[in-house]
Design a protein around this nucleic acid. Structure first.
Length: 291
DNA sequence: GCGTCCAGGTCTACC
DNA sequence: GGTAGACCTGGACGC
């Protein structure tokens, strides 16, 4: 009998829009079952022992079925709250989107909770894997990281690798085994710095720094530029940056500029009215069809 | 089958 | 502060 746990959710939480908020549900060690609308994720206990868990929405609650019983349930529930953004208050954001008829669906569908990983480190590595490549290559790189460096569960599934595991291999491994290409030295250096304590991405979650300063901190990581930093900022709950990439730009051109290319400043002006929520506003606007 | 282009960009050197 | 050119890889596309 698999142990099961439940989490109460607020009335403005929507499991589907949270899970399918962006591509993260498609990246290992997440597994997304779109037919039954549930996800699996390989969590880790504080001692590093991984276990698989199924997460689904049942009767307006979140049900979590763990692979085995001897787990740290408190951490599992904390991690689940974190990845589903259960504690995010999007009320001020919805007040802004409700002002525009075409964006009223955002509040109506309780959209805007961007799925994230239990650790900022994992989101950081995954974000670097999204830069300058196709989504299929992102999936390959992340899949390789999990498959070749992640600790296995009893059933052979694997957790996302720890910084220690990532620091245990060299640049050549990232290039040849992970297929990280020119990102190879970035991953080797990042893992080394995290293990040495020179960088602690988890502090970004609770940082008192103004967003512009925090973004500068993030950009000190090799491989993290404007897009990556602003994407990470969204995942730690700051939506000041648009995180423009080629996909987002092309969607904007199609939806709001008759398919014609325009500069980034014009896109910024378009979403200026959403203030500190503009990054979330553009993301919801561009992904409306997904929901 | 092969060559080219580009994708959920960033870094470095140079001005 | 701004910009050109280089950078890995895999998949789509044209021929």
């Amino acid at each position: 009998m698999r142990p099961e746990f439940y989490l109460e959710v607020s009335s403005d939480f929507n499991f589907k829009t949270a899970v399918y908020s962006h591509g993260w549900c498609d990246l290992a060690p997440f597994r997304f079952d779109i037919d039954n609308w549930r996800i699996n994720y390989v969590f880790s206990d504080p001692d590093g022992r991984p276990f698989d868990a199924l997460i689904e929405s049942v009767d307006a609650r979140i049900r979590i079925l763990a692979e085995r019983g001897d787990i740290d349930a408190e951490k599992l529930l904390r991690d689940t709250r974190h990845i589903l953004r259960l504690d995010d208050d999007l009320t001020p954001f919805y007040r802004l989107t409700d002002r525009e008829k075409r964006l009223r669906w955002v509040c109506a569908m309780s959209a805007g909770r961007l799925l994230r990983s239990p650790s900022v480190f994992e989101d950081l590595v995954k974000t670097i894997c999204t830069t300058n490549c196709s989504w299929s290559l992102t999936k390959i790189m992340v899949g390789n990281l999990v498959e070749k460096l992640g600790t296995p569960t009893a059933n052979g599934l694997r957790a996302f690798p720890t910084a220690d595991a990532m620091a245990s291999v060299d640049e050549g491994f990232y290039r040849n085994e992970i297929k990280a290409g020119y990102r190879a030295p970035y991953f080797a250096e990042l893992a080394r710095k995290v293990v040495n304590g020179d960088v602690d991405p988890e502090t970004w979650l609770v940082s008192d720094l103004p967003t512009t300063e925090l973004k500068k901190e993030m950009k000190k990581i090799k491989g993290v530029g404007d897009y990556a930093a602003e994407n990470l900022l969204k995942l730690v709950g700051r939506y000041d940056g648009l995180a423009l990439d080629s996909w987002l730009r092309s969607q904007f051109y199609k939806k709001h500029n008759r398919g014609e290319v325009c500069d980034d400043k014009s896109i910024a002006v378009f979403y200026e009215k959403f203030g500190r929520w503009r990054g979330l506003a553009i993301w919801c606007d561009m992904t409306e069809k997904w929901h």
